[in-house]
C-alpha cells in the first residue's frame, strides 16, 4: 500500500485515461477510481496499491488501484 499526493489529470491517450501526477512529477494511471476522483485539476492524496499484474491501453505509468482518497485544500 502506498500513499501518493498529487493532481488528477485526464490524459488523452487512445480513448483516454485518468492519471495522478505526483508532486514529484511521477505519473500513475488511476485504476478503479471512484467517480468523485475523476476531476481534472483536483489536488488529492490517494491511498492505493500498485498493480503489477494489470495492463492498460493508456500505458502512461504504474497502475495505481485506488483504495481511498482525500481531497486536499488548494491553498
Amino acid at each position: 500500500m502506498i500513499t501518493v499526493e498529487g493532481t488528477v489529470e485526464h490524459k488523452a491517450m487512445g480513448t483516454g485515461a485518468w492519471a495522478l501526477v505526483s508532486d514529484e512529477g511521477k505519473t500513475y494511471e488511476l485504476h478503479k477510481a471512484p467517480q468523485d476522483l475523476k476531476k481534472s485539476g483536483l489536488k488529492v492524496k490517494v491511498e492505493g496499491k500498485v498493480r503489477d499484474d494489470v495492463v492498460t491501453l493508456a500505458m502512461i505509468g504504474p497502475v495505481l488501484e485506488v483504495q481511498s482518497f482525500n481531497v486536499l485544500d488548494d491553498k
Binding site: G14, T15, A17, H31, K32, D53, V54, V55, T56, L57, A58, V63
Partner: peptide, 13 residues
C-alpha cells in the same frame, strides 16, 4: 481482455 475502464489482467492476456 481489457474492461470498459481500459485495464485487464496479465492472466487474461
Amino acid at each position: 481482455v481489457l474492461s470498459a475502464e481500459g485495464g485487464g489482467t496479465v492472466a487474461d492476456i
